[in-house]
Amino acid sequence: MDIKDIIKPENLVYKRTELMTDKALSYCPGCGHGTAHNITMEVIEEMGIWEDTIGVAPVGCSVLAYEFMNIDMTQAAHGRAPAVATGIKRVWPDKFVFTYQGDGDLAAIGGNETIHACNRGENIVIIFINNGIYGMTGGQMAPTTLPGMKSSTSPYGRDISTMGHPLKMTELVAQLPGTYFVTRQAVHTPNAVRKAKKAIRKAFEIQKEKKGLAFIEIVSNCNSGWKMEPVDSNNWMVDNMFPYFPLGDIKVNGELVK
């Protein structure tokens, strides 16, 4: 059978969602941000809620998320996305509101805003991309940088005796009564993408039911910051990031798992 006979509109089974704009993503080749964007927008498309969804973009590599997500979006100051989302959600309680933040934004400069939005149980979705490094500013240490991991501000490896420990923000917010669903996912393999998408769908369903805050960490790669080839960085992530940041649900239906 000729390929031309297969590639016909009636045989299409997958293409990028139209809720992503046509702009080429500003992310490095192989970066998980793009995949995370795609599945977030796919969920919004499949739920048919794009006319009622407002996204909040952070500061960091995904600062330009609003260029790629074809919905109404507000770009927040560094770390303040949960407060910005709170403001939007409180005045439009029937809209869907989500933040999309990296580790520096969410766990460092915005730690307080994150904790308090979670603790209030704001009825929003927080999507947290953790790649253990500051990508946009050129590979500096993040709160989630692993012990011994090299970055431009931990050039000899993160020394936990002076630089502190990697912050498990997701475990931390799971302890707060306001969070209803807390999970850690990844997007490096087809199965991981399917699971992560299911989690994002669940998060938006929770918002629809007004049950509280849904928090989804996506452990991701940063091949530029880690100075690796894209596929190698995914393998390194599996071997090094996952042991410290294990994948899976941490809190479901308001109850800690196990």
Partner: peptide, 8 residues
């Protein structure tokens, strides 16, 4: 920043 979000 809540004001920023809601004003926007």
């Amino acid at each position: 920043h809540m004001v920023y979000g809601a004003a926007g």
